[in-house]
Amino acid sequence: MSEGKFETVSSCVDNFQHDEQTFDNIINDEHLSTTWDRYHLIGDVLRNDTPDVLQLDLSAEIAKAIAAEPTVLAPKTTNVFMLKLKAKVVEFAKPVGQLAIAASAAGLMVLGVQSNVAQNNETILPSQIVKTIPMAGIAEPVSLNFQEPDRASQKQAFIDQQRRFHALLSDHQQQIKLGSLTVDSTNTDNESETTSIDNKKANKSN
């Protein structure tokens, strides 16, 4: 007899949900059913629920009485109805469970994002689009002996550099947009090209 089975019995006694299969197993196994009795008794004693007179063999008496009763052969209408009801309850319960899982996952994600933001807070710099790569041989060694003002000025220089790079990059893109005007006038491949030049002249005369 494994520990697991006793645990199952214990959880049944404690009113945890179990399927009918487990109950059947407990009922069919004599050893387990006596354990079931014993656990209930222990529980009753602990809760001070014991009746004045203990009738330990009550269940055996009832079992004997049931066995003596005649078998009733009748359609199980109520049972079928109960089964249907149960199936519906199960169906309803499943999506709720999935929702719960999804919700907990979302909770985790929110937690994760928040902690990420917290970590990044320290290193937020303006317009840091890309990492600076010093040309070969200029990278200075970083040491713990650096004094605070040095570090601050270094950081300032870094920020300045980032800002400069960012400004140059956007100006470059801007100039290309304006520059395409002159690029066109050197092209003479399309018929539509001539209209564009005409348009330019027209614009100028305006």
């Binding site: 689009i129 790569i133 400069r164």
Partner: peptide
Amino acid sequence: RNADFVMDGATLVLN
């Protein structure tokens, strides 16, 4: 100031 550069994709900015 020594040459320093960044890359934005394939676009290089050298200064």
